[in-house]
Simulated scan of single mutants.
Amino acid sequence: MPAQPPGDSADPEGAGSEGAEPPVRYERRGPVAYVTMDRPRYRNAQNSAMTYALDTAFYRAADDPEVRAVVLAGAGEHFSAGHDIGTPERDAHLPFERRAGLWWDHTGRSGAESRFARESEVYLGMCRRWRELPKPVIASVQGACVAGGLMLAWICDLIVASEDAFFADPVVRMGIPGVEYFAHPWAMPPRIAKEFLYTGDRMPARRAYEVGMVNRVVPRAELAAETDRLARRIAEMPTFGLALTKRAVNQAEDLQGLHSGMDSVFGLHHLAHAHNAETAADSLGGMNIAAMKEATR
């Protein structure tokens, strides 16, 4: 992404072990908070440390009365390549303070019980919380927005994409019916969602705009500036009015089945994990980082 202008405040969120780079940066520029995923070496793959750092950053933006809009971005060449399934900092085995639900800690459990508890918290639970942040959130997407990256873009109210951005959910190759935050039939028409899932192919930014998943498509060099302009335009509106409007539209989506639909598909998702664990090399059907990267070429 192009260099960002100086801000009013900036500091990292969720630093890991001593000396490790924090996975999320937080910066306020006037009325806009920028939340930036910062694992560019791994295409901003989301480990648990990043997930909880995002949660902390979103809470911070919600609590700050000076913040009237939020931008979610990814450092480097890509927005996010999805969930971390194999980097050196993958931390799926570690405990974290649970914030999104009352399921018990996944560590010390085994099999489907462990997977269900963890993913209820860090995937479905976190995304549902962030969708309800009572301030407008804009995703600024460049490069890859794949699998778990889609989940982060879809919890945002608006999406601005660069011309080189692409969207994909290749997890059907694992035998799994889409990512945990199953917003596909609401983010795009159902037949388009089926093609998107059945093939696992990349959807270019322009096509995503045509089907209504993306609000604006701009040249890569203009992405940051266009996102900032939109965020500042929205920030001129009354804060409470924006919060109520967001609640109104989210409630309409839920009345159309979004919330209950996700619950039902989450069960299917974990049935697929359990089936893979019994019949394949692991709960991911033997698919690793290299295989998933190849699937979205």
Rank of each mutant, 00 (worst) to 15 (best):
M1C: 02
P5Q: 07
G7S: 12
P12E: 12
A15E: 04
S17W: 14
E18M: 11
G19S: 12
E21L: 10
R29M: 09
P31D: 03
Y34C: 02
Y34L: 07
T36S: 04
P40N: 08
R43I: 00
Q46H: 14
T51K: 06
F58Y: 02
A61D: 12
P65E: 03
L72W: 07
G74A: 07
E77S: 14
S80Q: 06
A81R: 07
G82D: 12
H83E: 13
D84T: 15
D84Q: 08
P95D: 14
F96R: 02
A100H: 15
G101E: 11
L102I: 12
T107R: 15
E113F: 12
E113I: 13
A117T: 05
L124F: 03
M126T: 11
R128F: 01
P134K: 08
V137L: 03
I138G: 06
A139P: 07
S140T: 03
S140I: 04
S140P: 08
V141I: 14
G143I: 08
G149P: 04
A153F: 01
W154V: 00
C156E: 00
A161H: 00
A161I: 00
S162F: 00
D169A: 01
P170Y: 12
V171W: 05
V171R: 09
V171Y: 11
R173A: 15
R173G: 15
I176Q: 15
P177S: 11
P177G: 13
P177A: 13
P185I: 10
F196V: 04
M203G: 00
R207Y: 03
E210C: 06
V211R: 03
G212R: 10
G212T: 10
A224R: 02
E226G: 04
L230Q: 13
L230E: 11
A231G: 13
A231D: 13
A231S: 11
E236I: 09
E236R: 15
M237W: 13
P238Y: 12
T239S: 12
F240H: 10
L242R: 15
L242V: 09
T245N: 07
K246D: 08
K246W: 08
A248P: 00
A248I: 03
N250G: 05
Q251V: 14
Q251F: 11
D254I: 00
G257F: 00
G257V: 04
L258W: 11
H259T: 14
H259F: 14
G261W: 02
M262I: 11
H270T: 14
A272Q: 13
T279C: 10
A280L: 09
S283G: 09
G285I: 03
G286I: 10
M287F: 09
K293C: 01
T296C: 02
